[in-house]
Write a protein that binds this DNA or RNA. Structure first.
Length: 311
DNA sequence: AAGACGAAAGTGGTTGA
DNA sequence: TCAACAACTTTCGTCTT
């Protein structure tokens, strides 16, 4: 996330996904959210300005900085009161039996109010599921938040009815990964969520259409950092691979090709050129494509870019 | 022996009538 | 709804290091 702060230097912020400038600065949560497509543009930003500087649009936002951080990952955004289950008062003494009964009733109502209607209940289940899947995939927090935002929109639009909560959650995660430019393949998500890949894809397309979200197609470059680190390759290889991809994309060598296959081929070429060779099989495993595809792609690229590969 | 290569047949998804 | 189609996969025999 550091580089995104740097590249969006000096608050000339646009959503890097849809280009929208309608950004919601949530200073309480230290996040910037695109009102157009729901992307969590940035998080953990530092509010460097003094309290009184929030004078225009931010004035509606509460200026106080106290309280627990809000999060979209808890169904009530972390705002609820929780009543302790222990029968002790604040100084640790036992609470007399008369008041215990009252406390019991309070807890009961608290529970009822906290998860009051169908939507709340749905969110509770879904967000738990979301975190479970996201943990399996080691997804960073901003991706989870983005997925949660998308899911909330889906619930508001009533898109869940007729679909499984898990399926929609998986689709939201898939979308969030792409929005945040850390794409996972449908296969990876399907495995973590234990849902059929086709179903996730179907729900994904449906959700995007219904919510009017536009995602630019993933580029092979988005996959490079993850694949390289999975292969234990150095930054040099990564840079070289991205360099190759940029040239290849300029020459229209990537259109119509699966981005993972192209990324795998670029890494293969780069690893050979830099001298940190990985076998086609090793790369094919992390990229989720076959050696044959890597071969086909890298033949094309090497030929057109006139790169000599000596074994 | 491992890795790379490439032909051939099979598969799943998109497109256009 | 169906057939055509391109991309990709699987499989397998051969070549190279």
């Amino acid at each position: 996330m550091v580089d995104s702060i740097a590249s969006n230097s000096e608050y000339e912020l646009k959503c890097r996904e849809c280009g929208g400038t309608d950004l919601y600065h949530d200073y309480d949560r230290a996040e910037i959210i695109c009102n157009n497509c729901g992307l969590v543009v940035d998080y953990n930003m530092i509010d460097s300005g003094p309290e009184w500087r929030a004078f225009d649009s931010e004035q509606v936002v509460k200026r106080t900085r106290t309280g627990a951080p809000l999060t979209y990952l808890i169904h009530d955004k972390g705002l609820s009161t929780t009543i302790d289950w222990r029968n002790k008062d604040s100084s640790g003494r036992d609470i007399p039996s008369k008041q215990r009964a009252q406390l019991y009733r309070m807890r009961k109502w608290q529970q009822r109010i906290r998860v009051s209607n169908a939507k709340e209940r749905n969110l509770t289940i879904a967000l738990t599921e979301l975190n479970k899947i996201a943990s399996k995939l080691d997804l960073p927090k901003n991706v989870r938040e983005t997925a949660a935002v998308v899911y909330r929109k889906a619930v508001d639009k009533g898109l869940i009815r007729g679909r499984s909560i898990e399926g929609v959650v998986a689709a939201c995660i898939y979308a969030a990964c792409r929005k945040c430019l850390v794409p996972r393949t449908l296969d990876e998500i399907a495995e973590a969520a234990m849902i059929d890949r086709k179903e996730i894809g179907r729900i994904y397309r449906f959700t995007l259409r219904e919510l009017g979200i536009n995602l630019s197609p993933t580029t092979p470059i988005d996959y490079i950092p993850r694949f390289c680190s999975a292969l234990g390759l150095s930054k040099d290889v990564e840079i070289k691979a991205i360099d190759i991809l940029n040239k290849a994309m300029n020459m229209q060598l990537t259109s119509g090709r699966g981005p993972t296959g192209v990324a795998a081929a670029a890494i293969y070429i780069a690893s050979v050129l830099i001298g940190e060779r990985r076998t086609q099989q090793e790369i094919s495993e992390v990229a989720g494509v076959t050696e044959v595809t890597i071969r086909n792609r890298y033949k094309e690229i090497a030929e057109k870019l006139e790169i000599e590969i000596t074994m």
